[in-house]
């Protein structure tokens, strides 16, 4: 069992999830409530990783992070060195690659919160930040759960971007998916299966639990239950 690859993957997915929840929450809030005309443009950029082949994304990230790229020059100036084929580089690439999986569920959840609840909170003296913490966020618990699970799972499952930006360096960039590919190339099907099967089982269990929890009508699915039904 390639414990090094498993540990590396878990560490990467955990950090990506934490970073994306921190970055994605304000971004999703802006997308859910902004009325600016260029909101659609930002939404398109956020959704881009969904449709772009990972190799294309990885290719451009590789160029940007390289010595001639803007990101590469920045990191060199800061004394961090170049990012390609490092864990940090992999982290940056994964954050961009998984962006829509965090932002989209949050945007949907925030947008589904009854507007009159938010406005009532304002009239009760609560600032926009307090209103977010006391009203919008708790009512979007389901959205946060979905965003967390999808981001984590998607990072665990990524392959093309890792290969382009990180390569296949044990302990640095050899994630589970790369390790499986590596074993299959070497016709070592037993080792590949030893990594692949647990991944399949864990992914299924996590998703099944998530969707079951979210499926309950009052389970904090982000949609507030109406205080009372309308008149007959």
């Amino acid at each position: 069992m390639d414990w090094q690859a498993i540990w590396l993957t878990a560490r990467l997915a955990f950090l990506v999830t934490v970073i994306l929840l921190a970055l994605g929450t304000p971004l999703a809030h802006w997308l859910a409530f902004s009325t600016r005309r260029w909101r659609g443009l930002v939404e398109a950029v956020v959704a881009l990783p969904l449709v772009l082949p990972p190799t294309v994304l990885g290719f451009y990230l590789l160029l940007a992070m390289g010595p001639a790229g803007p990101l590469g020059r920045l990191t060199e100036t800061l004394g961090i060195g170049l990012l390609p084929f490092t864990f940090q580089g992999l982290l940056v690439a994964s954050v961009i690659y998984s962006l829509p999986f965090a932002v989209q569920p949050l945007t949907v959840a925030f947008g589904a919160v009854d507007r009159s609840l938010i406005e009532t909170s304002w009239t009760l003296g609560r600032s926009p930040l307090q209103t977010f913490l006391r009203v919008t966020a708790p009512l979007s618990a389901g959205g946060f759960l979905t965003a967390t699970v999808l981001t984590f799972a998607h990072t665990v499952g990524e392959f093309g971007v890792v290969l382009m930006v990180g390569g296949n360096i044990p302990g640095v960039s050899r994630t589970i998916s790369i390790a499986i590919y590596d074993r299959v190339q070497a016709l070592d099907y037993d080792s590949a299966a030893a990594l692949a099967l647990p991944l399949l089982v864990v992914s299924f269990v996590v998703l099944a639990v998530t969707y079951t929890v979210r499926g309950r009508p009052t389970g904090g699915s982000g949609r507030p239950v109406r205080p009372w039904p309308s008149a007959s």
């Binding site: 009159s116 406005e119 009239t123 003296g125 109406r226």
Partner: peptide, 16 residues
């Protein structure tokens, strides 16, 4: 926030 009004929207909007 600073107007000190008691606002009751249509349907009353209790925090669920």
């Amino acid at each position: 926030q600073v107007r000190r009004v008691g606002y009751l929207p249509q349907g009353s909007a209790l925090f669920p």
